[in-house]
Design a protein around this nucleic acid. Structure first.
Lengths: 287, 287
DNA sequence: CGGATGCGGTCCATTAATGGACCACAGTAT
DNA sequence: ATACTGTGGTCCATTAATGGACCGCATCCG
């Protein structure tokens, strides 16, 4: 059996994540695939590179032997991508991005700053809207969207799962007696809160803007179901139930197929995808 | 779109085979898979690494950029397999090898010595014959063969191209007035020399053994068409036309599919393939 | 000129890999 | 003691990749 070189990606993700499930998140796959590929890798090498424990996967002696070389190979692949991409085009021009404002504000702006530092000749135009027609009309090159499925003819990559949590003002004495700060589309909002511990709490406020909902929560007007990226690093908010989260609609990084051949769009998409993937625990509200 | 690391195997096979079908044979897959994966690779890199021509695939500038790094990565993977396999399992048992005597004597014996040094518990049995039935009857585990195509059901990897050159005794004053030392199959031999600068020179000797032909050349009896690995490091021989070489039949490293699961056979084949690949200039008579 | 043999390219029935659901176990908090 | 949350592990309906068949083109040979 010939070694599947992609299994080294799995190995590296496992070494970093220390568990099959963490590796799966960072690779954008499932933990069962990760475990299967680990078995395949160990079979191909004729050596066991991780011990399985209830706490997770622990690297073995042969695994340590492999790790150094695997890191070198990964660096080589990154260099391949830089060298070959760079051999063809000088990256400059504009990339137009559209994403929900909260994702932009609480997650992506530092990522975009890093990107600009790395590629100073690429301009990023943020078109902060939330409509699919952006890509169809070429109004945007890259879109972050939340939906069950992207449009069939858009090229979509599933981002790591985003989660919402229930937040209220920091220091609230009895957070469990609060009412909801919710959306005007009450049917949809009722569906959302039906799976929370407070499905029967009253909806005291209906506010048609997420940022305003967050502000209302900060002011102590009630509890709001907010993205973890929005609430977890806000020292004026706290979770009502510390370990409760629930998934949002699936997050996609989308682009129009015609634009895939634009190098700077591709580089940008890869960069953003990798950066968000690295923060998969944060966007899922873990830790 | 993340780079599929296995696509670099496809890239290397294409560079060596010069066509999708040749690459497919060496990879044990189909040419449609090879072409699809090439497209995927080029897409992931955002650069075209081969030009498609009716004669086959021609490497491009970005492809040349990629090639060096790809070879390094391949060497790293081979080292991964050696290091990690060596760290966990003791490889022992016998490996039976068959190859043309000249290839064994002038190219492979140092390689086999290196292999034995590294894996002292693996015995190498050299079965120095030259018949395909060796593998079919399990008389040999690994075979080096020269032919246009290997048997369909044998697993073949194309070795780097071997070349012949015209040799005579070192110190011959007027080498261009000599006659041929050739084979008894005069039709085939006429075909071979028709593409040399001395297609009209007489065939003074017909000797049915390559080693004897070489010895005859050393003795000054004429000029012989010999593999470069045989003549270039022999201080009793010299090339008649310094830079003239011509390719031999294609060299294959063959094994029976059933034997692929024997670890020591696999390790041995990888080792030999890598070692010969590293001497690709020598076997082609370059430099 | 026609046949043979190579090539790249595309399609779709078949095959192999995936991932979501579920299981059992272990640790932690209440 | 119970509930919750993590882990590895397995299974199978679903999804994605494969490869064999076929196409058209180019070259070579008789």
């Amino acid at each position: 059996m010939s070694l599947d070189w992609n299994d080294l990606k799995v190995f590296l993700a496992l070494e970093r994540g220390r568990s099959a499930r963490a590796a799966a998140v960072s690779l954008g796959t499932s933990h069962s695939t990760v475990l299967r590929r680990l078995q395949t890798l160990e079979h191909a090498l004729g050596a066991q590179v991780f011990d399985r424990t209830p706490e997770g996967l622990l690297i073995t002696g042969p695994g340590e032997t492999l790790l150094h070389k695997a890191q070198q190979i990964e660096a080589d692949f990154l260099e391949v991508e830089r060298e070959v991409a760079g051999a063809d085009v000088v990256l400059k021009g504009a990339v137009r991005l559209t994403a929900p404002p909260a994702v932009l504000k609480y997650l992506m702006l530092p990522i975009l700053a890093d990107f600009r530092a790395k590629y100073p000749e690429i301009e990023i135009e943020i078109v902060s809207t939330n409509r699919f027609t952006d890509l169809n009309k070429r109004d945007a090159d890259i879109a972050v969207r939340f939906s069950e499925e992207p449009d069939d003819y858009l090229v979509g990559r599933r981002l790591p799962p985003f989660h919402d949590a229930i937040f209220c003002a920091r220091g609230t004495a009895d957070p469990q007696g609060m009412g909801w700060i919710g959306w005007t589309n009450t049917v949809r909002f009722q569906e959302r809160i039906a799976t929370t511990p407070f499905s029967n709490a009253p909806v005291d406020w209906t506010i048609p803007d997420l940022e305003l909902q967050a502000q209302a929560a900060r002011e102590g007007l009630g509890m709001a179901l907010l993205p973890c990226v929005m609430g977890d690093r806000d020292d004026r908010l706290q979770r009502v139930v510390p370990h409760f989260t629930q998934p949002t609609l699936t997050a996609w990084l989308l682009q129009h197929p015609d634009l895939r051949r634009l190098e700077r769009v591709r580089i940008f998409a890869e960069f953003v995808f990798a950066a968000i993937s690295k923060q998969s625990r944060f966007v899922a509200g873990i830790g």
